[in-house]
Write a protein that binds this DNA or RNA. Structure first.
Lengths: 135, 135
DNA sequence: CTTATAAATGTTATATTATTACATAGTGTT
DNA sequence: AACACTATGTAATAATATAACATTTATAAG
């Protein structure tokens, strides 16, 4: 076995790489059909090709879905180990989205227990407000 | 002026009332087209009628949208004053959704500051895991 | 009461987001 | 080579949401 499992886990297929590169270069979250439009010249012609790649990239933690916007952003936490515990701030005017990486916040949420004492290792938090520029 | 502003703020129009009643009675979050199907006998025939009522109800804090599920649930915080600061737990197996009302959590999030010192009064948090029954 | 304004409704059409289903091709392992 | 697994290609369609415009109803001021 030349390629270790670890290496394998970090390797992207052709379509995954194309779509990840596009999202990673983008200064703003991209919607699925915006992505589709932008990769048609690279041979990705149909929605399922885009959605499949997006699904895998989300699973891997390489990108995150901004649920309130139906859009995708590259993970900016160095490790990409936080695929399942995400937090973002969203400007309601310019729609700028920033991934929040706060040890305090993630610790608080990872340890949060509901009324029944249940803990949840997976969560998605979206803060809304006005960014510096828009205030 | 017989009806005070306070009363007015809590009164729902005909379509809003029909749709709120349906959601409020439901044990699970309802999707827009499920709602549409269920209120057609009451004369609400087209998507815009449903979406308009949903928008208003969300604004008023009478219902909340579960963003990761595109579904709507009635507010279960007695006051309905927390329209803009919501938290839910979602079971990944049975899809049961519960609104979390934790003074500690809401206080923590309302006071959370990002790297730039920004505060956000509005947020939506969705926890994922397995409910008691599904474990 | 009536008139101006805003809020809500009704309706058709269409835009946007996402999935199903099935056929084909590549990759890694034995 | 044979197998299992993952990824890809393609067409059709399902599910979610909004635009645009006409009409009606509710509210509050004069």
């Amino acid at each position: 076995m030349v390629i270790s499992k670890i290496d394998k886990m970090h390797s992207l297929s052709k379509n995954q790489q194309i779509i990840f590169d596009l999202i990673d270069k983008s200064p703003e979250p991209l919607k699925a059909y915006t992505i589709l439009f932008n990769v048609q010249k690279k041979g990705i012609k149909a929605p399922p090709q885009v959605y499949r790649a997006l699904d895998k990239l989300v699973e891997m933690g390489k990108i995150h879905k901004i649920e309130s916007r139906n859009a995708f952003i590259a993970c900016h936490n160095s490790s990409c180990q936080v695929a399942k515990a995400t937090a973002f701030s969203i400007c309601e005017i310019c729609e700028k989205v920033t991934e929040i990486s706060s040890a305090g916040l993630s610790k608080y949420l990872a340890n949060f227990k509901d009324k029944d004492g249940m803990k949840y290792s997976k969560y998605n938090l979206e803060f809304f407000g006005l960014c510096k520029k828009c205030r």
